[in-house]
Each structure stands twice: as structure tokens, then as C-alpha cells.
């Protein structure tokens, strides 16, 4: 088996396994997870679980404090009272479970102070992209200042991007060192999610290698994409990362979280991902501390499907805010 060697800051050498992935096998295996029949109460459970796992995201150049405040409000109270009242009226014999808050808000560092003020005491985590998101093409010292500032202003989770250019030209040490340095800045103040941007890594072998490297370097979560590059999260890529997480757990006993991001827009897709997580990693990972969806429009579809499950009717599309 081939391997890649990198050195820890102390000088000790780490060997990262690098072996080929069966692409056709991975695609086929991933497609099998879309064929499970999840109905009624199980589906309802999955929809509620997916809400708690959603990282409600806005990462646009046009983000304003007002938009971030609005998004924070939605994160804490995903539906208006009218939604619950109408649901109870249409399904009087059922006990409607309250809609939980989402897992986290994900914003640019500039919006962190505003989001921190809005989310205070709500239980919703505050994730900030950092390290020159989305390209990651800035010197390390600036990336670290980016992270420090976000943590200082209240980010509890840092979504960092790896330097894909360095990775693709084989400079694995640089990629590894940057993750270690960012982890060092986060310390115990913030969870570190490492974005691999799998759409730019070209091969499944690279995805597996980058996943393992990120975990060795101290990632708490590994994340597929920035959402700015197509393809973003796909089922096969997520499967490969989940398998890497499982193998790493078997080897070290450390549980690493997973966050597919970008392109997950429907409740149906979300349920497919949950099925995959459950079958690859087990129910320990079916928790917002171990699995997240990076999404913005997914939440509305989850709410629509919850309405349908309880009432048997399809709700208005435009009753929910777009952001």
C-alpha cells in the first residue's frame, strides 16, 4: 500500500495511507442508500433529526447585518407560530412535536459579531468560515489572524479551507501544517471543520487521502465543500469520507464528525444521507455533534415535508422565508 509521509511540528513522522478507491464500487454502494423506504414515524424522526443537524448558511458577498439577523431568527425559530397552529388544526388527533432549532449558523467572519449577539443563549452554534474562504489562497499568517478574529468575536466552530493548490502539486506538508496551525489557534474555544473542496481534488483517492490528513492534523469535522465549486457534496464522495472516518476511529478510537455541504436541497436527499451515516458509522454519528448538513434551502423543504407528514397536505412554498 502506498503512503504519504508528513512531519508533526515536533518533528515526529506520520504516515498517511494512500491507496486507490474503487470508483464504480463507491458509486454503486452510494446509490444503494437512496433505495431504502423510510416512511411515516421513521421519516418524521429523520426530518426532525435533519433540522437539528442543519448548518443554516449564508455566504454571499451581498450579506448584510440585517440578513444575518433574520437568518439567526430563523435558526432559533424555524417556523412562525401560524405554522404550528395550522398544523394542529389540520391534524387535531396528533401531538405535534415542537420544531427544534437548527444546529448552527454559518457566516463569514465579518458577520460573526452580529450573529453572536443574535444567537446568545439560544443553543445554536455559530460557525464561521475562515482561512481566506473559499479559495484559501492567502499567506498562513493572514489565515490565522482570520481565525483568531472569528474565535475572539464568538465563533464556536471554524470552517477552514485547505490549500487545494498545494495538495494537488503534492505539497502535503504545507496542507498538513496549515491545519495543525489553525487547530492550534482554535484550541478548546472552537471546533475545527476542515473543508476539503472535493470538487477540486479530482479523484476519490485524493478525497480519501485529504480526509485522513485532516483527521491526523486535528480536525474535529471533515467537510466536503465550500458550496462555491461544482460538484459540491455528492453521495459517493461523502461515503468515501465516512469510510475514512470509520477507519480512523477503528485505528485511533477518535470519533471525527462529518459535514456534507452544497447541493443538498431536499428532505429526500437529507434522509438518504442519514441512512448512509447510520449504515456506515452507526447511530453514534446521528447527532448534531457528529454530523451536519451545510445548506440554506434544505430547511424549508424539511419543514414542508413535516407539514405533509402530519396533515397529509402540501403547504405553500412561499410561507417560509427564502433566507
Amino acid at each position: 500500500m502506498a503512503s504519504v509521509s508528513v512531519r508533526m511540528p515536533g518533528g515526529s513522522k506520520i504516515t498517511i495511507p494512500h491507496y486507490p478507491i474503487d470508483m464504480i464500487g463507491a458509486n454503486e454502494r452510494a446509490s444503494t442508500f437512496t433505495k431504502r423506504s423510510i416512511k411515516k414515524e421513521s421519516k418524521l424522526d429523520a426530518l426532525y433529526t435533519a433540522i437539528t443537524m442543519t448548518d443554516l448558511t449564508t455566504l454571499e458577498g451581498a450579506d448584510t447585518p440585517g440578513k444575518v439577523e433574520q437568518l439567526c431568527g430563523k435558526a432559533i425559530h424555524p417556523v412562525p407560530d401560524q405554522f404550528m397552529q395550522e398544523l394542529q388544526r389540520l391534524a387535531p388527533s396528533r401531538t405535534i412535536r415542537p420544531i427544534p432549532h437548527v444546529g448552527a449558523i454559518c457566516v463569514y467572519p465579518e458577520q460573526v459579531p452580529i450573529a453572536a449577539r443574535c444567537l446568545e443563549g439560544s443553543g445554536v452554534e455559530l460557525a464561521s468560515v475562515a482561512t481566506a474562504f473559499p479559495a484559501g489562497q492567502l499567506p498562513l499568517d493572514i489565515k490565522l489572524r482570520d481565525v483568531k478574529r472569528a474565535v475572539k468575536f464568538g465563533a464556536t466552530e471554524i470552517d477552514m479551507v485547505i490549500d487545494r493548490g498545494a495538495f494537488l502539486r503534492g505539497d502535503f506538508q504545507k496542507v498538513f501544517d496549515e491545519i495543525v496551525a489553525v487547530k492550534d489557534v482554535c484550541e478548546d474555544n472552537a471546533h475545527l471543520k476542515v473543508i476539503l473542496e472535493t470538487g477540486e481534488l479530482k479523484t476519490y483517492d485524493n478525497v480519501r487521502l485529504a480526509s485522513w490528513m485532516a483527521m491526523e492534523a486535528g480536525a474535529d469535522f471533515i467537510k466536503t465543500s465550500t458550496g462555491k465549486v461544482a460538484p459540491a457534496a455528492t453521495m459517493p464522495v461523502t461515503l468515501i469520507m465516512l469510510q475514512a472516518i470509520w477507519d480512523y476511529y477503528q485505528e485511533t478510537g477518535i470519533k471525527i464528525g462529518m459535514k456534507p455541504a452544497g447541493g443538498i436541497r431536499t428532505a429526500k436527499q437529507a434522509v438518504h444521507y442519514l441512512v448512509m451515516v447510520n449504515e456506515v458509522l452507526g447511530s453514534d454519528w446521528l447527532h448534531p455533534t457528529m454530523f451536519r448538513f451545510g445548506a440554506s434551502s434544505l430547511l424549508n423543504d424539511l419543514l414542508r415535508q413535516i407539514f405533509k407528514q402530519y396533515s397529509g397536505q402540501y403547504y405553500y412554498d412561499d410561507i417560509f422565508s427564502l433566507d
Binding site: G312, Q313, Y314, Y315, Y316, D317
Partner: peptide, 9 residues
Amino acid sequence: KQFIATHRE
């Protein structure tokens, strides 16, 4: 028929 009649959209 039921789904057509009750769909809010």
C-alpha cells in the same frame, strides 16, 4: 383528486 384539492400551491 385529494392531493390536487388540498395542495396549497
